[in-house]
Design a protein around this nucleic acid. Structure first.
Lengths: 345, 345
DNA sequence: ATGAAAGCGCTAACAT
DNA sequence: ATGTTAGCGCTTTCAT
């Protein structure tokens, strides 16, 4: 193997061009005319740099300038398209603003999340975009108070000074609930994700509000589940459908939840949407190719990431925390086949 | 906003403890006993560090040690689960080995890929895992010769000294073709991805080999497509199915290709699998919930990423390029509903 | 058992 | 129009 030809440094270039490092630095940073460096010297420096294939050390620059050009992203699960889509948007947006993104996967553990954030801060990332687990925020508040630009995405914290980006969960839920109610459904089961997280809580509020509007009493026994996963959806749907046979519709808080529910329905001999209607939050790729295309409340996921990245880089440039803390993005209802009229009892 | 309490440095700790920076450094790096530093001094240093909430600057360490602990990952499209799954595996594996991963999305452009790799090298990443576009490798060969540990994933280069990880495309294709042939199919259309890339070429070879075994002449007119995308699959399937009505089965090189083909079939009034059978490379999430669950050749995608990360970190630790250059991972055929007996003509 | 000092590669204030 | 020098925060050789 050819060994690395130990990279040339600025002083190598300076020596090659017979100038001082400062002159070399100035020329290569485009400050030649500001410092009125002669055309010939400038040219010479550029040629030397070219000849030695000089690549300035970003590490050294970072140390000197106290600017790393790094941005940290932390998500709970990169194998979930919701989060990989956010990660992609952040990465690309950051890249466009001259930043590189360090990506970390917390695997759904708060402990890991803390640890990863500390690591990123130690690496002097200039800003952080975090999709938190959503149940504990002290470590994030600490980062925020420390002054590092930070934006939270999705699982936000109610009543916080931190900058946050999420969807309008209540409005989305109202859309879905309205559709179910219009179709005559009166017994609606709710498959929730991680209780206590803002998306979960807000959607629950939406359910209650929608029911209140048509004078149906909310019954917490109609709510089950504890994760945004397939398994949680499966278990909770099975439980609700067996203990509450009067249920004619299910509102699932995530696509995996909905798929779990679908499987449970199938196993219980219930057809969707004939026997049981199904709506869920978050969209599915290739929904139209499903056995029963799901009616979904679709979030603008890439925009969630793009906005977060923009907010954080803006803050970096302006030096000011954006005055608007909470950014709620609109959602849309995509009506497909999984919701039908309530079956005759 | 509380401004950042400018982080304390090693010399702050040293001052606080009334020792020299060298002593402080030694203690905090666990070299106290190697240097026979007194218990009391060591304790004092540790307390001072604690008190000042000292966090060593990784940037400064990187400069001094010439080790950044950074690993770069480049993929063509993070919104494709195939690549996000690889990215996840690499990230997690790197993390476990004490590295942080900088993630970049080339958006399918070789130019961007080059640029991103240069950027990563400038940032002194210690190693690179790249899922290249797969048509041009000079920039990658350069990195390799430069001595930076590099592993290519998926779209490898045939006959190269670079370390590469990919699936056994030929074996996978043979499995799929065998299934089609066993079901009586004799006119098989091929929906290819980016021609010229190794996965595409190898799969084409597999098709030819399978046909040769049963004495069917390979006809290049039965091959269409130019991307691994839905659109390419749609267009090429439509074209093949209309110009070659004798076709009874399609072999698609990616899931998006297959979905596009499915859509084309539907539009042409062809039922899957009754009129037309369909197999594809790469698995689909929730395949069982599809209208017609796809028979797929499933790659162990996370293992692709994990192995790549391992190879690269091994190389970093051992200082030697692994002797085995090409790593071919086995694939499995997942038989589902999209393949059926050839229809009576 | 501890400290002084050099230096990683770069930028920028301060000389000329 | 260009050079000298200090210093970013750290590790490590060489003294003592």
């Amino acid at each position: 193997m050819t060994k690395a030809p130990s990279n040339s440094t600025l002083s190598d270039v300076a020596r090659e061009a017979n100038v001082s490092v400062s002159t070399a630095s100035r020329v290569l940073n485009g400050l030649a005319e500001k410092y009125r460096i002669s055309q010939s010297t400038a040219q010479l420096v550029r040629e030397s740099a070219e000849k030695l294939d000089f690549r300035p050390s970003q590490v050294a620059r970072s140390l000197r300038l106290k600017r790393t050009g790094l941005l940290g992203i932390v998500v709970p699960d990169l194998s979930n398209t919701f989060f990989s889509s956010i990660a992609r948007a952040v990465t690309i947006s950051a890249e466009a603003d001259g930043f590189s993104a360090i990506l970390a996967d917390s695997g759904g553990s708060v402990e890991k999340e803390k640890q990863l954030i500390d690591q990123l801060v130690d690496r002097s990332v200039e800003a952080l975009v975090v999709c938190p687990i959503g149940l504990s925020f002290e470590h994030l508040e600490r980062v925020h108070h420390h002054g590092t630009p930070l934006v939270l995405v999705d699982r936000c914290k109610a009543c916080s000074e931190m900058v946050q980006v999420t969807s309008d969960h209540i409005a989305g839920t109202l859309l879905a609930m309205k559709l179910l109610l219009e179709n005559g459904h009166r017994h609606i089961g709710v498959l929730q994700g991680i209780a206590g997280t803002l998306p979960c809580d807000q959607r629950l509020l939406g359910v209650q509000e929608a029911l209140a509007e048509v004078d149906i009493e909310f019954d917490s026994a109609m709510v089950a589940g504890d994760q945004f996963t397939y398994e949680s959806g499966y278990r909770s749907a099975r439980q609700l459908l067996t203990t509450h046979p009067e249920i004619t519709a299910l509102f699932a808080m995530s696509t995996p939840n909905a798929f779990g529910a679908y499987q449970a329905a199938v196993e219980l001999g219930l057809r969707v949407p004939d026997d049981i209607s199904l709506v869920c939050f978050d969209d599915v790729a290739f929904a139209d190719f499903m056995q029963v295309p799901l009616t979904t409340i679709s979030q603008d996921v890439p925009e969630l990431g793009r906005l977060a990245a923009t907010l954080v880089t803006q803050q970096l440039l302006s030096g000011e925390v954006p005055s608007q803390k909470l950014h709620k993005l609109p959602v849309t209802l995509l009506t497909r086949a999984s919701v039908g009229k309530v079956p005759p009892s």
